[in-house]
Design a protein around this nucleic acid. Sequence first.
DNA 1: TTGTAGGCGTTATCAT
DNA 2: ATGATAACGCCTACAA
Lengths: 352, 352
Amino acid sequence: MLQKANAQVSQANRHRPPSPTLQDVATAAGVSTATVSRCLNAPDRVVAKTREKVLRVVREMGYAPNFGAQALAAKRTNTIGAIIPTMENAIFARGLQAFQEELARHGLTLLVASSSYQPDLEEEQIRTLIARGADALLLIGFDRAQGVYDYLEKRGIPYVISWAHRGGSGPLAVGFDNRAAMRLLADKVFALGHEAVAVISAPVAQNDRARERVEAVQDAAAAAHGAGAAISIVEVPYAIENGARAMADLMAQTPRPTAVLCGNDVLAVGALARTRALGLDVPRDVSITGFDDIELAQIADPALTTVHVPHADMGREAASLIARLLSGGTGESVALETRIVMRGSLGPPGKP
Amino acid sequence: MLQKANAQVSQANRHRPPSPTLQDVATAAGVSTATVSRCLNAPDRVVAKTREKVLRVVREMGYAPNFGAQALAAKRTNTIGAIIPTMENAIFARGLQAFQEELARHGLTLLVASSSYQPDLEEEQIRTLIARGADALLLIGFDRAQGVYDYLEKRGIPYVISWAHRGGSGPLAVGFDNRAAMRLLADKVFALGHEAVAVISAPVAQNDRARERVEAVQDAAAAAHGAGAAISIVEVPYAIENGARAMADLMAQTPRPTAVLCGNDVLAVGALARTRALGLDVPRDVSITGFDDIELAQIADPALTTVHVPHADMGREAASLIARLLSGGTGESVALETRIVMRGSLGPPGKP
DNA sequence: TTGTAGGCGTTATCAT
DNA sequence: ATGATAACGCCTACAA
């Protein structure tokens, strides 16, 4: 029997035995609070015999340190805050999961907040997390007001940028070069002979990842067909249905694009579904590509040609970088490699 | 210009102006710390003139209360912990997002942990979150060791179960009746004339939602074809690829099922993709259904017949219930309605 | 309405 | 190696 049948009495206002304090443990073990504290935080500074006795009492009483008191006295919380644009799609889920697992390995707890892709909300969340005692922050991408960076520096809060990376100096970052990754893919598209190329992107304002991906396509177009080459760009928030709608618009254009590069797999899957619903064939009538290589990309039909991003590595690396910074060490930015995954959704332009 | 070009000096060990304390504000405003505290926590207990002056100083100095001190003195953290089975798929994302937004509206912060569908890990996370001062918890489903419930009651931590609901007494829950929901769908399947029916489910051990869904199909089978009616059941962890593999196995059975009910949309989408890869037609050769109605269900081809779950409502309701409990109020469980969404993936069994 | 002062539970310094 | 004890920053009776 796993279920519980007691009534709805979970109100907070019932009698409740207070949890044991350090003092309680000390008294029970016949030592001072200082010794108990040491047993817990610096076991080697206490003789084995004492330590064993104390730790036994700790277990017996089910003692757990009071978080607030600990934070107050130690001036750290072992909490890392992460502000991600959204929890609503899978893009960030895997990376965040790995981030959390690696943090846990270092005794750190993750505190997540989401900004809904809104800069002012992000700023608010940053302040909230810091107020909540976050020892360090994980932020997505570089784009944010200078004032935010100033604030972080002023407060001395270590932070790491993820999901993006640039050469040269700047904030610590663990990520990949969005521009270079998309450029590689776009070059392949143009090399196949496509001329009428379109892009479905997330809104590029305040979003360096999205912007660099779009610019990479423009650069590739210029390289392939000269500076005059114009490509259609549609900006819509990340969502399957938005990808579908954007695709419908593009397919109504004249001349119709023969290849549509999407800012991520979610948009691409939506575009793919709508294309087929319109009775068009992929890739014969139009090629479609994605970005991220989430699981969905493989089971799409045809499977999605996309840019593989090592999300889990990224989360893990970011976490261990933060752990290093927190333990007083120094850190360096990490550039992760992406790679193009060729699947069925990209082909040469069909003959008209 | 939004970028920042200073070098990698974000170590924690630099000179840093300490953030202002309540005392600093009090001194600057020429009042006592008690007055400042009241201005912040009980503004109506301070005369307007004083309050304005104090709040202005608060703003000017950029004062923010120290979390640890606040928690220590007030014995609450305004933090709600949520332990979800996984962040890796979209099932929980939307509900959690809504949960967080509603919490924020009540001045509460969300702390998320994931259990990876492992009961012992869930227990550990519960203790961690409580140790970190969570004022209340959100848990998914009913299945967990009695000891966990005892612990929560002993510590007096309010908690709410979500993603599931049962009539009668028991822990407070905001969710829906998994069994009834799946039963409705299964009845429709049998009403169409299907006899060889199979189920692809998440592992049912320690997962009441999955188990009740499977049992509902069994009940429906018994109701339609008598107690002897046997249905194939495959248990695999939630993942697109697992759904695909399970489907391949089922399609190799003799007699081949004419309808496969999946425990959620993720499994169903995988099953759907594999079915088509095998050259079979859905729903002519085999019908497939899902559960949850995530966005993916609509763009699958054919679109997925599934059970629509009001994830966002669920998160919102759970959050406001918790807020009510915390403010000393009483609360009641909330049963949310699900509904069957008929789409193209379910049809009558094809003629052999 | 405002101020005073004690206490929350831990850490860490300084003695012993 | 261990024990006193002073912070840490805020809240909240209680007093004025």
